[in-house]
Amino acid sequence: MTMTINDSTYTTETAKTKRRLYMELENCIGCRSCLAACTQCGGHEQRNRNYVYDVNPLVNRQTMPLMCLHCVDPACARSCPAQAIQIHETGAVLSALVEKCIGCQNCTIACPYGIPKFDEEENLMYKCDLCIDRTKDDIPPMCASVCPSNTLQWLTEEEIAEKQNRHDLDNEKWVTSMPYLEGETNVKVNLPGILQGTVKLF
């Protein structure tokens, strides 16, 4: 697979208004506010759906969030025998439809990032739906709303492109898909190294 950026298919107008989740991994301070807030989203039913990891726990305090990246061609949905995982018109890969999910857990095995969680008792998969009740109206998802460090941001295509212009030094630190991801995603990621390309003020 090759790196594809489909930004060009968007008109200038959508680039100004269409917002995406953008992750600035270098900013993470490990507070896990995103996890706490996840449960607050319309009906996430007290279960958070994302992850924050200590990168090298015996060495330093670096942490990174790992959320559903909302793949353009999601392996979870591809592997679902019941077609329970739907893709919203905004590109969000939704949580399993409760009436369709048959509890086979194929999605948890298929997801290259290990995102879907499974509730054995309820025989039901649940995952990040990008707070679809918020994002469908362009209200930022809970995680990006509360993130105190701006690791998670809700940005327009244009704003993301600006960031890419500043920080993408063509050394694979700027990641929107390959080689650090397994395919194109709706969520954009900037690997640690945000400050590369930043010119010091003095």
């Binding site: 990168v55 090298n56 990174m64 790992l66 990032y113 290990g114 640690p192």
Partner: peptide, 14 residues
């Protein structure tokens, strides 16, 4: 699998 992704992101063998 999740930690492996973090490792890919960070370069540390999480």
């Amino acid at each position: 699998r999740r930690k492996y992704r973090i490792a890919r992101f960070s370069g540390s063998p999480t």
